[in-house]
Amino acid sequence: MVVLNKIYTRTGDKGETVLGNGDRVAKHDLRVEAYGTSDELNCFVGVARLEAKGETDAALSRIQNDLFDLGADLCRP
């Protein structure tokens, strides 16, 4: 079992996060909200795939790949 007592990012938490290109933006920035929402949707699609079979599973797999690409695009301005 891994135990994490302390985690340091060395940048502090001033209500900001770092985008894929290194830019810092507010954690409530619409871009951060958008890629967080697309990631959350991707999780729900993954849960649906647990029960999906055949062509439905294949379609959901393509949707997941598209959502990964969308998240990456949103992460890099």
Rank of each mutant, 00 (worst) to 15 (best):
M1Y: 08
V2Y: 14
V2G: 08
V2A: 12
V3A: 13
V3Y: 07
N5D: 07
K6I: 12
I7E: 02
Y8K: 13
Y8A: 11
Y8G: 08
Y8R: 13
T9L: 03
R10T: 15
T11D: 11
T11P: 02
G12M: 07
K14F: 15
K14S: 15
G15C: 06
E16H: 02
E16Q: 10
E16W: 04
T17E: 04
T17L: 07
V18G: 10
V18E: 15
L19Y: 08
L19D: 03
G20Y: 04
G20C: 04
G20E: 09
G20D: 05
N21T: 11
G22T: 09
G22S: 06
G22D: 02
V25T: 05
V25N: 04
V25R: 02
A26V: 02
K27D: 03
D29C: 01
D29W: 02
D29H: 13
R31T: 13
V32C: 10
V32W: 03
E33V: 13
A34E: 04
G36T: 08
G36S: 06
S38N: 02
S38F: 11
D39T: 09
D39M: 08
E40R: 09
L41N: 02
N42K: 04
N42E: 04
C43M: 06
C43H: 12
C43A: 12
C43D: 08
F44W: 11
V45F: 10
V45I: 15
G46L: 04
G46H: 00
G46P: 00
V47D: 07
V47F: 07
A48Q: 06
R49Q: 15
L50W: 03
L50M: 14
L50N: 08
E51Q: 09
E51W: 04
A52M: 03
K53H: 12
G54P: 01
E55T: 13
D57M: 05
A58R: 00
A59T: 13
L60I: 15
L60Y: 01
L60C: 10
S61Y: 02
S61G: 15
S61T: 15
S61R: 02
S61P: 03
R62T: 10
R62W: 01
R62L: 08
Q64A: 15
D66I: 10
D66M: 12
D66K: 05
L67D: 00
F68S: 07
D69W: 01
L70A: 08
L70C: 13
A72D: 14
A72S: 07
A72Q: 09
D73K: 07
L74K: 00
R76M: 11
R76A: 14
P77Q: 11
